[in-house]
């Protein structure tokens, strides 16, 4: 068994239940996500992963239960408070979700324009630094998303997600549908980003069904099935789990 050192929970989920009409999507989930760690939530398609992510972001309200993020109960926050609070999150979407009318540079500059009062020089320094740190070359700064490869779009999406120095970085299916080389590149990028932001206490949460890719990079892995967490272990222990469903998923 891997030894679990003391960790400070940054996201606390208690008895989280979400129903859409008669359908129960999340069924009484309770677990913590720890500061400075990479946690992956695995599960089959339709298991409720995206619904869980939307609850963590405060985009959906639970039917029952509570979610506490950075010490704040999301249920008790108004829409306007939640809007402000979401600036603590950065997110890399499955297909990067870059604004297609803006260049790579402008995409990363966008949150800085919206939420900071940085000078033009400070913004330039920050945007160029972020783009270079994720491996985007200077000649690609002015390219539109349609002119970038899938891997480059992910890099720009990650740079945009990091622009406001988030406390929690979320990755939605970061490696799904990618070739092995790009998958490795994205994994390296996730680890590198987590390492570089460790001093700030940044936490990484990955939603995925790519078991091989995520087991390599995660500290903790949770397995979600039919709206329930059926296993939640350190990554090393998860690989050797006795749960038949997890065994099947890991050996697929």
């Amino acid at each position: 068994m891997q030894t679990i050192e003391y960790q400070e929970p940054i996201i606390q989920i208690k008895n989280l239940t979400k129903k859409f009409g008669e359908h129960t999507i999340l069924d009484g989930l309770s677990f913590d996500i720890y500061k400075n760690k990479i946690t992956t939530i695995l599960g089959f398609s339709g298991a409720g992963k995206s619904t869980l992510l939307k609850h963590i972001l405060g985009l959906l309200r639970p039917t029952e239960g509570s979610i506490t993020v950075l010490g704040k109960d999301l249920n008790k926050m108004s829409e306007v408070e939640l809007k402000e609070f979401r600036r603590n999150f950065g997110m890399l979407f499955q297909y990067a979700a870059l604004f297609d009318s803006l260049s790579a540079y402008e995409n990363v500059e966008f949150p800085l324009n919206e939420f900071t009062k940085l000078t033009e020089y400070e913004k330039k320094e920050r945007v160029e630094g972020l783009l270079r740190s994720v491996g985007i070359k200077d000649e690609s700064f002015k390219k539109l998303p349609s002119e970038l490869s899938g891997g480059m779009r992910k890099r720009v999406g990650l740079a945009r997600g990091l622009a406001l120095n988030p406390f929690i970085m979320l990755y939605d299916e970061p490696t799904t549908g990618l070739d092995p080389i790009t998958t490795k590149m994205v994994n390296d990028l996730i680890i590198d980003t987590a390492e570089r932001n460790k001093d700030r206490g940044m936490t990484t949460l990955i939603i995925s069904h790519d078991v091989r890719a995520t087991l390599k990079i995660s500290d903790f892995v949770a397995f979600l099935d039919h709206g329930k967490i059926v296993e939640y272990l350190p990554a090393e222990d998860f690989k050797n789990s006795d749960n038949p469903l997890v065994k099947e998923f890991v050996n697929l």
């Binding site: 972001l57 985009l59 809007k83 402000e84 609070f85 979401r86 600036r87 999150f89 997110m91 979407f93 499955q94 297909y95 979700a97 870059l98 604004f99 297609d100 966008f110 949150p111 919206e114 939420f115 406001l164 979320l170």
Partner: peptide, 18 residues
Amino acid sequence: GSMKVTEQIDALEVMGIN
């Protein structure tokens, strides 16, 4: 509509922009 299907609106919401 095309921003919606390519998750660009979700990206705005996650950034705290309505």
